[in-house]
């Protein structure tokens, strides 16, 4: 049986439907897909906004923070009147107002070893827009164990990084630990607030994360697997370097030592340079 769009949906998604690479079938895939976004912040805001607009049918958001004035320079899902409200609630309001087709699931909790597998297991694609290394390593390992594709982006100052790890195909795809085997030691790490960030860098990298997610769901184009994209806002330059699967990787290498989830104890988000 074919999918029945309402009149409103046909209008809403018309720019997708007329693309041969998407079409009615692709739009149906999007409406049936489930995407989880870790963090409703600088990366999560634009990613979530575009995923909802595109009609991704189920969108999960994990965040335990409340909206703060200092977020509003870049976290475009939130607004001044929402200061003090949980970010997941604020995000849910914005997204549902944009597109009532979307079922937004708010996970108003800190992600940890005990809940990460449960949170991730029902989703098709995971986007990491978190702000600290322990969460990034935990989410990576959980996605790896659950065979979920992970679109990972990170931002700092004027720079962004983006790559996709496709854990549906572990033989081919490198993992986060192939690139960075372990988090930097806590002593070398100050807080993100000290480092600063040009807000728009999150907008660019988060939007690229949404692009990766849509391609994975639609099964079109080439996902950014085995490649790391670096964006330099000051030079307006994108560079791509190769990521290789590391035979010595502690998670996905020939003799893996990481066989269960590890929780690192560290709060901060970048290395001191």
């Amino acid at each position: 049986m074919s999918f029945q769009f309402t009149e409103e949906q046909i209008k809403r998604y018309s720019r997708h439907i007329i693309l041969p690479e998407v079409g009615g079938k692709g739009q149906e895939k999007l409406l049936n897909s489930k995407v989880l976004v870790i963090g409703a912040g600088g990366l999560g805001s634009p990613a979530l906004y575009y995923l909802a607009a595109a009609g991704v049918g189920t969108i999960g958001i994990v965040d335990f923070d409340v909206v703060d004035f200092s977020n509003l320079q870049r976290q475009i899902l939130h607004n001044t009147s929402r200061v003090g409200k949980p970010k997941v609630e604020s995000a849910k309001m914005t997204l549902e107002e944009l597109n009532p087709d979307v079922n937004v699931i708010a996970h108003n909790e800190r992600i940890h070893k005990g809940n990460v597998l449960d949170i991730i297991k029902d989703y098709d694609v995971v986007l990491d827009g978190s702000d600290n290394f322990p969460t990034r390593f935990l989410v990576n390992d959980a996605c790896y164990f659950l065979d979920k594709p992970l679109v990972s982006a990170a931002i700092l100052r004027f720079e962004g990084q983006l790559t996709t790890f496709d854990y549906r195909n572990k033989e081919e795809s490198p993992c986060y630990r192939c690139l960075f085997p372990e988090p930097p030691p806590p002593g070398l790490v100050p807080s993100c607030q000290e480092a600063g960030l040009l807000g728009v860098v999150g907008g660019i990298m988060g939007t690229l994360q949404a692009n990766e997610a849509l391609k994975l769901i639609l099964d079109i184009g080439e996902p950014l697997v085995g490649k790391l994209l670096i964006f330099d806002a000051l030079g307006t330059e994108f560079n791509v370097v190769k990521l290789r699967k590391d035979k010595k990787c502690p998670l996905c290498g020939e003799n893996p030592v990481i066989k269960e989830l590890i929780e690192y104890d560290q709060e901060s988000c970048d290395i001191r340079f």
């Binding site: 931002i155 700092l156 720079e159 960030l197 670096i230 290789r244 590391d246 988000c269 970048d270």
Partner: peptide
């Protein structure tokens, strides 16, 4: 790490990118 590590040879015109892990997202 997939070449010769610190002993990797460089020639005129090569481009070397230094890429640290970053974790910011919010």
């Amino acid at each position: 790490r997939f070449l010769e590590g610190k002993d990797t040879k460089l020639k005129d015109g090569d481009v070397v990118a230094i890429i640290p892990a970053i974790a910011g997202g919010k």
